[in-house]
């Protein structure tokens, strides 16, 4: 029988490194108290955004899934409601990023910068979480009264993470992949 051996590519290393970074941020962030349940700075999303802008959606998807799954394993929330919320937010935000990028795929000039993408990601992230929370866990219409507050925070925090991402991305602009 032939020996089984893996070939790891440069890209694999990159995904591993970025995922490790995202997981670290995610876990540190989860240790801080939040003003409103469900509202977090979402700095781990900066890494996802960075991946998306710099390397494309496939890398971003892998990094963000790895982050969601591994962080939840470490925090002991795997397959719990928290995990499902985290996963739905991450998936919806990536999907929205793709949808926004699609019309501009041949017009790089008009593509949003990190800030625009961050706003999209953060609003869709919280909307995804909200819908899952409402549908699965708290199917009470009163929850919708909180939605405007959540979205307001999403816009503010999206701006912040967008600016951070922009600082992260700019130095790489000149470099090849």
């Amino acid at each position: 029988m032939k020996q089984l051996h893996f070939i790891t590519t440069h890209e694999d290393h990159r995904v591993a490194l970025l995922a490790a970074l995202a997981i670290t941020i995610h876990i540190i962030e989860s240790a801080f108290p939040t003003p409103l349940p469900g509202i977090k700075p979402g700095l781990a999303n900066v890494i996802t955004l960075f991946c998306f802008i710099r390397y494309g959606w496939k890398t971003a998807l892998q990094v963000s899934l790895l982050r969601v799954v591994i962080s939840s394993l470490i925090l002991g929330s795997f397959l719990s409601p928290t995990f499902l919320l985290s996963l739905s937010g991450a998936l919806l935000s990536l999907l929205s990023l793709l949808l926004v990028q699609w019309p501009f795929r041949h017009h790089l000039k008009y593509q949003p910068s990190a800030i625009g993408y961050a706003l999209i990601a953060s609003i869709s992230h919280i909307s995804g979480q909200f819908l899952v929370a409402w549908y699965f866990f708290i199917p009470h219409p009163g929850l919708f009264k909180l939605l405007p507050i959540f979205i307001t925070f999403a816009v503010l925090l999206g701006l912040v993470s967008g600016i951070i991402t922009q600082f992260l991305v700019e130095p790489y602009k000149a470099l090849p992949e």
């Binding site: 593509q111 910068s113 800030i115 979205i151 816009v155 701006l159």
Partner: peptide, 23 residues
């Protein structure tokens, strides 16, 4: 320096509009 592109500003405006509409 923080740099906003035209598309970013449109997205920001839409986001603010969304907020107002939700309220």
């Amino acid at each position: 320096t923080i740099h906003f592109k035209g598309t970013d500003i449109i997205i920001l405006l839409l986001a603010v509009l969304l907020c107002v509409w939700l309220y």
